[in-house]
């Protein structure tokens, strides 16, 4: 399985120190957890709402909690996990601010990845056509989109600053089907995806 993981997961795996404990919030079928287990010997566990995804995780020998993300963190002590990971999840949450702070409480470090709403294609569609943007990362129509809290890279950086979260590393990408390209300049315009490694100040 590790060879066919989503391209952005490869960047995330690179951010994790070997032998760490990891909590993957919204872990899906556990592809990232499995990759971390195999290549970083990480002690991984996940939280996932979909029952079929939970079954898939267990089928792959992973420890997973079947439930809502918010209820999932109450059992964890402060700074009890090396990394708490939230991939492409923030935008569907009702209270992303609450969950980010919870993740920062439980994790010594957090890895948070977001689709960037400041990406030029998104801006272009809204400005030139006056239409709700649809992209590869954000493929939904306005009426069926689960994404209720979209953000730009700039908004997210400002949030981190305001809440006392230090950005240790930021990797901005353009995602393709099986590959990614790192965006070196003006990421809030040219990157459609951002990965942040955070730590509480």
């Amino acid at each position: 399985m590790p060879d066919k993981i989503r391209p952005e997961f490869r960047c995330i795996v690179d951010m994790v120190e070997p032998g760490s404990s990891v909590l993957d919030m919204g872990c899906g079928e556990g592809h990232l957890m499995r990759a971390l287990q195999v290549s970083k010997r990480a002690r991984v566990q996940g939280i996932e709402l979909s029952d079929t995804a939970v079954q898939e995780c267990v089928a792959n020998g992973l420890f997973v909690y079947h439930g809502d993300l918010d209820e999932g963190l109450a059992d964890f002590n402060d700074q009890s996990v090396d990394y708490v990971i939230l991939t492409s999840t923030l935008q569907v949450l009702h209270r992303p601010d609450f969950l980010i702070m919870e993740a920062a409480r439980v994790g010594k470090r957090c890895i948070i990845s977001i689709p960037n709403f400041g990406y030029w294609r998104v801006r272009f569609q809204l400005m030139c056509f006056g239409e709700m943007p649809r992209t590869k990362n954000l493929p939904y129509e306005w009426y069926n989109s689960p994404n209720i809290h979209l953000t730009t890279l700039r908004d997210f950086r400002r949030f981190c600053k305001e809440r006392g979260l230090r950005i240790l590393r930021e990797t901005d990408l353009v995602l393709g089907e099986d590959m990614y390209k790192v965006v070196p300049a003006l990421p809030n315009f040219f990157a459609d995806y951002g990965i942040f490694l955070l730590e509480h100040e």
């Binding site: 029952d51 997973v64 079947h66 059992d75 964890f76």
Partner: peptide, 21 residues
């Protein structure tokens, strides 16, 4: 069941929890 899982997790014991629909 969640009460059991919660107690286990607070003890840092490996646990999977699945709620069958």
């Amino acid at each position: 069941s969640k009460e059991i899982v919660s107690a286990l997790r607070r003890n840092n014991i490996d646990v999977s929890y699945a709620e069958l629909q």
